[in-house]
Design a protein around this nucleic acid. Structure first.
Lengths: 224, 224
DNA sequence: CGCATGGTTCGATCCATATCGAAGCATTCC
DNA sequence: GGAATGCTTCGATATGGATCGAACCATGCG
């Protein structure tokens, strides 16, 4: 018998198929309502409600009430990171898929990871930022260089360095085994990509597909 | 309903208290027998055996038979990483402990993480290696510099760069939120620390406590 | 105010699985 | 070979929890 943090409690919350589906859906980053999550998980509304109550009680979700709608979202980056880690093991351990389908290919190129961009595109972008000395890798974490604030401001991305959440965070990528950019800056960049309509979210998936022009614009702005 | 990797299956394996205790015990890095794990988990031998079969089936453990002993160990660094991530969330979400006890303090200073050293000591060591340009941080990963092989060889640590497992890996630390050194080199260094009797493993814990002399030796060799 | 919609609570059912005792294999030691 | 140790399998039990229908709140709209 050992004491310590109740890891079984947390893991068992993720360990039910219905709840796992809900959490996976929320990895898309947008908060969802109970009915949407019920549909996502393939269970009835009462069942979903009960699961959501458990997840809330376990501290894995946050709730934002807006009128008669109640939006559930992941409680934070740490929870998202844990789920990505579990996904990583499940991928590694699960049946080796012979050939990744088209959606999987799209997922590998670019996908949403909670609130920021992940996949090959995201990895390339982070590398480029470091090459251009906009970001500095330090002690396994990432920091803003002095020139970064004005640079990103010129692109319409205001970085509020006073924000409590770490501005940058190196988040391991489970398809490409390298880091991509999370944190407030990562989230802001994803926002811009969507706002500028450079890319759209694939329906019912975390995949992000760029349009022809969008890709060019993205590369011009972030990859040169 | 969504397809994809069976994350619920993996999480539910960790989600049982008995299995969670076993996995936590195995985070100590040494492979253990079924009876030892039964004791750790506080269940009978048949129950433990059943759990171990499930964990094996799920690909979370490896088994090494030696005579009539059968040693169970974590399947790999990825699994260890997942468990650390879950521990991290459980710590964050669980009851805020008012004051960390003495064992927790020791854990924060130095502990075993699967097969290498973690905690403040380990973080300091990695920083020092980078300062001395023995290791190079690149793309969120860590690589050996040319001078590293001879340097570590002089300390009695042979680095076989042909080994399939990544030589170095930046592994996030959940007490100190920074990287420490995992991988084959990290494992070799921990081996040396124990072999030289600079430190001993705390009984029934992942904590590693240095002796007076051991600490001095460690600092002389690795932190200067 | 009355109705519709989104969501939760309650109660009953039912299935999965954690548990242990006893028995069965396997390996080593004498 | 026989006894002892380490571990797994089998069988029976019991308990936790996932599930849904129906009834019950709450918010917004006309």
């Amino acid at each position: 018998m050992r004491e310590g943090p109740d890891i079984a409690r947390i893991a068992s919350l993720v360990g039910d198929p219905a709840r796992a589906n809900m959490l996976t859906a929320l990895m898309g980053g947008t908060a969802l309502t109970a009915s949407e999550l019920a549909l996502e998980a393939g269970v009835s509304l009462p069942t979903a409600s009960s699961h959501l109550a458990k997840l809330m009680d376990g501290g894995l979700l946050t709730l934002a009430s807006q009128g008669r709608h109640r939006y559930y979202g992941l409680a934070g980056p740490q929870v998202a990171g844990m789920i990505e880690a579990i996904i990583g093991v499940a991928e590694a351990v699960g049946p080796k898929r012979v050939r990744p389908g088209p959606r999987d290919a799209a997922m590998r190129v670019a996908r949403v990871c909670y609130d920021h961009l992940a996949g090959e595109q995201a990895v390339a972008m982070l590398d480029r930022f470091v090459d251009r000395k906009l970001l500095l890798r330090e002690e396994g974490e990432i920091r803003l260089s002095p020139s970064a604030i004005s640079h990103f401001a010129a692109l319409g991305i205001e970085i509020d360095s006073k924000v409590r959440r770490p501005v940058c965070r190196a988040c391991l990528d489970w398809s490409v085994r390298r880091s991509h950019l999370a944190g407030a800056l990562g989230a802001a960049i994803l926002d811009k990509i969507i706002a500028e309509k450079w890319a759209r979210r694939e329906k019912d998936s975390r995949a992000v597909v760029f349009s022809q022009k969008g890709r060019q614009a993205f590369e011009r702005v972030f990859l040169t």
